[in-house]
Simulated assay, not measured.
Amino acid sequence: MTKTAVSRLATVIKLIRFCVAVCGTDVSDPNYRMWTWTYLILCAIFAFFVFTGYTMYVGVMLKDWTIILQALAVAGSAAQGLTKFLCCVGNASVMRKIQGTYESMYREYEGRNGVYTKYLHQRINNFWYLMLAFVWVYTSLVIVMICFPLFEFVAYGKRGMVLHFLIPGLDHNSDSGYLVLISLHCTFLILGAFGNFGGDMYLFLFIVNVPLLKDIFNAKFDEFNALVVQENKYKEMHAMLWDLLGWHQKYATILQETKQIFTVVMFVQLMTACVGILCTISCIFTKVWPTAPAYLIYSFIVLYTFCGLGTIVETTNEQFTTEIYSNCLWYEMPPKEQKLVILMLAKSQKERSLTAADMLPLSMATALQLTKAIYSFSMMMITYLDYEK
């Protein structure tokens, strides 16, 4: 039996809620409140930063800058997780509102045949493929970062690190101390993977479905144009025009609320991803971190995916404007309705786009600019290392 788009959306939301519930942040629950586990996770995040700071201090004392680079590279992901944690919990009611809007939209248009059902399944398919891709990315990263150091320890007795922090008073040079430290590393890594993945999926759910509003708007516009050319359908045409105005306003509201929740997240995501990439590349050149290539691939995937979300919004904004300007039979309408179309067209040309804290536009162009800067740094690093040799 073929699943409905509504049931598929419910399955997706259930999976996201499971991931964030592991970190005590199931903000989809109408009765959500921070509880003991949530505060423990928050304490664990701050403990990670304290341990990282201590590790960097050790690196300064030993005059080993590679320790600092490794600590900074991984600390970026922790900063991303903390930002998602605080932004999602702080905007829980807004997130539930956006989620509820999409759920009601799916329920309403699932019952309509033809093109509406096609659009619903198309967006669910896009999100499902993106989610599976990130499941693979996060799972692969966790497995590589955990298994490789354990393999080296068992096979060669080498004490490699899963994450890069030390704990004051814990002797990581002893077998027992090393195993305790690695166990904590694995725990932090797995919790961080669940938290970052869940936060990412909420953002992806909201943004991947943005083009769905445009698709439904286009279908409504086709129905509207069919009414415009019928002189005896003025009341229906007028009501349909107000429905289109309301639909465009719903689109603008969702964009505004999504930006409200995630604009700081996206800024931290871009900045820490760039810092992490630079530090990881340095570790690869100096050959001090065996699993650095896996972390580097992960960082680039995150960077380009987040910038790609901004491009999705930019493209959808342009398509809204094009639909109103090119496909509307405004010349067949009475002057009163023509003025309403002009207002909607003017609004569509000033629609919001995703930004990183209103400082950087979130787009593939930004990703390419950042990549050029990273490439320039990498070439400089290679030249410096060759000079040192």
Score class of each variant (00 low, 15 high):
Asn31Lys: 14
Tyr32His: 06
Leu170Glu: 03
Gly308Phe: 04
Thr291Ile: 10
Lys14Met: 04
Lys287Asn: 13
Asp358Ser: 14
Phe306Arg: 03
Tyr384Ile: 11
Tyr106Phe: 15
Cys274Val: 14
Gln349Glu: 11
Leu166Ala: 02
Ile67Val: 12
Val89Gly: 01
Phe49Arg: 01
Asp222Gln: 12
Ala10Lys: 14
Ile207Asp: 04
Gln269Cys: 03
Phe197Asn: 02
Leu343Gln: 09
Thr139Phe: 10
Lys220Cys: 04
Ala21Ser: 15
Cys147Thr: 14
Ala47Phe: 09
Cys23Val: 13
Val154Asn: 02
Leu360Gly: 00
Met131Leu: 12
Phe306Val: 11
Val341Thr: 06
Pro361Val: 05
Lys336Gly: 00
Pro211Glu: 08
Thr305Gln: 11
Glu103Ala: 13
Ala373Asn: 07
Asp29Glu: 12
Lys118Arg: 15
Lys347Glu: 14
Ala193Trp: 04
Cys87Gln: 15
Leu179Gly: 00
Leu241Gly: 09
Met105Val: 12
Pro290Ser: 11
Val135Pro: 00
Leu354Ser: 03
Val137Asn: 09
Ile190Lys: 03
Leu72Ala: 12
Ile207Asn: 02
Ile143Arg: 00
Ser7Met: 09
Leu360Met: 14
Ser326Arg: 12
Asp215Gly: 09
Ser299Val: 01
Phe217Ser: 07
Gln230Pro: 01
Met266Pro: 02
Tyr331Leu: 11
Ala73Thr: 03
Trp330Gln: 07
Ala239Trp: 05
Gly81Asn: 10
Thr101Lys: 14
Gly195Ile: 02
Ser299His: 01
Asn91Val: 00
Leu368Thr: 14
Glu314Ile: 13
Glu223Lys: 10
Thr355Asn: 11
Val162Ala: 04
His121Trp: 00
Ile98Gln: 09
Tyr202Leu: 08
Gly192Phe: 06
Met344Asp: 10
Lys97Asp: 13
Leu345Ser: 04
Leu62Asp: 13
Phe151Gly: 02
Ser77Met: 12
Tyr384Ser: 10
Met61Lys: 11
Thr305Gly: 11
Gly114Leu: 03
